[in-house]
Amino acid sequence: MKLNRRDFMKISGVTAAGIAVSGLGFDLKPVKAHAGLLKTQYAKETTTICCYCAVGCGAIVHTSRRGDGRVINIEGDPDHVINRGSLCSKGSSLKQLVENDRRLTEPMYRAPFSDKWEKVSWEWALSTIAQRVKKTRDNSFEKINAARQVVNRTTRIASIGSAAMDNEECWIYQALMRSLGLVYIEHQARI
């Protein structure tokens, strides 16, 4: 059981001095401070926009100042005009995007007809993707259709994604897909 993070238990004896400036108007003198330190007390705060859907809720990311810069907490930004501090269940779990031992940090490859994933290098993955896209696109490219209209397209490649891209990324992505001649461009949030 993981209770080590519940620091307030361990530090329940600390004096109230540290939180006297909390602005709550409490008289802290007669009682011991039960929770003097927040886990985000000394963290660096950075604002961000939730990546999940088009609502665009604002969030605050608390990161450690002690070297590793890992994420300590992510919660809704009360000053953000869209969500005023609230988040949905997906937004509330944003921290798991980063602090997650199941997060993939290397590209994975499943060969045709294989039943397992294997780790591959970025270099191999990117050049293999490029080669295969080029090959499929060149082999399937239609300059004109049956009615002899100019179409300049490929119908053998489709793109699905991504809800996690921002406006600028979407522009670049669209430009690439259109220049290759893709017509099947869809967004997974709509499927």
């Binding site: 409490f26 401070a33 929770a35 886990k39």
Partner: peptide, 14 residues
Amino acid sequence: DRIHNGLKPACVTA
């Protein structure tokens, strides 16, 4: 801990 530091509980905030 949040209440003492001027924050709402995590559930209420969310």
